[in-house]
Simulated scan of single mutants.
Amino acid sequence: MNTTVELAACYRLAPGVAIRPERFGGLVYRYDNRRLYFLHSHRAVEFVNGLDGCRSLRETLDDFLTSREMPPSTGETLVKAVAQLERLGLLTHGA
């Protein structure tokens, strides 16, 4: 099973998936099977909600880190979150 992401790929939430911000981070809900997943970071929720399927993961990540003046090391955590969500079928490629 692929657990790595392509930085040149364009990601977005899969159809039927929504994220609701919570105090601890966010709840990811998949409508087709009614499963809940957790994101334990407000940054991750904000980042994943910003994936539009049109811009590459690298471009989105660079813009996110720069606009919030975050160190590049924060990007590793966000990319790991994307990899996990993709593996679970919560993210898809393209617009």
Rank of each mutant, 00 (worst) to 15 (best):
L13N: 00
R55I: 00
R34Q: 15
T66P: 03
L7T: 08
C10D: 01
V5L: 06
D32F: 07
A9W: 02
L65A: 07
L36R: 11
T66L: 15
L85N: 04
G50H: 00
Y29R: 09
L51K: 02
A18R: 10
Y31P: 09
T3C: 06
C54L: 09
H42V: 10
H40G: 11
R87V: 02
D63T: 08
M1H: 07
R34T: 15
D52W: 00
F47C: 06
E6K: 11
F64W: 13
L27W: 04
L57V: 14
F64C: 03
V17P: 00
Y29W: 02
Y37N: 07
L51M: 10
E6R: 08
K80M: 12
C10V: 02
G75S: 10
F24P: 05
L13T: 03
Y37F: 15
P21D: 04
G16V: 04
P71A: 15
N2Y: 11
R87T: 07
R20N: 08
R12S: 10
R35W: 01
R55S: 10
D52F: 00
L57A: 07
F47N: 04
M1G: 14
Y11E: 01
L27R: 15
R35C: 10
L57S: 07
S67E: 15
P21Y: 01
T60G: 02
L51D: 00
G25N: 11
V48L: 08
E86F: 13
G25E: 03
F38E: 12
L78S: 01
L85I: 09
L39W: 10
Y11G: 03
G16C: 10
S56A: 01
A8R: 05
D52T: 00
G75R: 09
L61R: 05
R68Q: 08
R30D: 15
R23S: 15
R34N: 03
S73E: 14
S73T: 14
I19S: 02
V82A: 04
L39F: 04
A44G: 05
A83V: 13
P15C: 12
A83R: 12
G75T: 09
G75H: 10
V17A: 02
T77W: 07
Y11V: 01
E69Q: 12
L78C: 06
E46P: 02
R23K: 06
T77Y: 11
Y31S: 15
V28G: 01
I19H: 02
E22Q: 09
T66G: 06
T60W: 00
K80G: 07
L7R: 06
E22H: 08
D62G: 05
S41N: 06
R35E: 15
I19V: 11
R23A: 11
D32R: 11
P21A: 15
A9H: 06
G25I: 11
P21N: 08
L13G: 07
V28N: 01
V5D: 02
L78P: 08
P71Y: 03
M70I: 09
G16M: 11
T66W: 14
L85T: 04
C54W: 03
F24M: 04
N2L: 14
E86C: 12
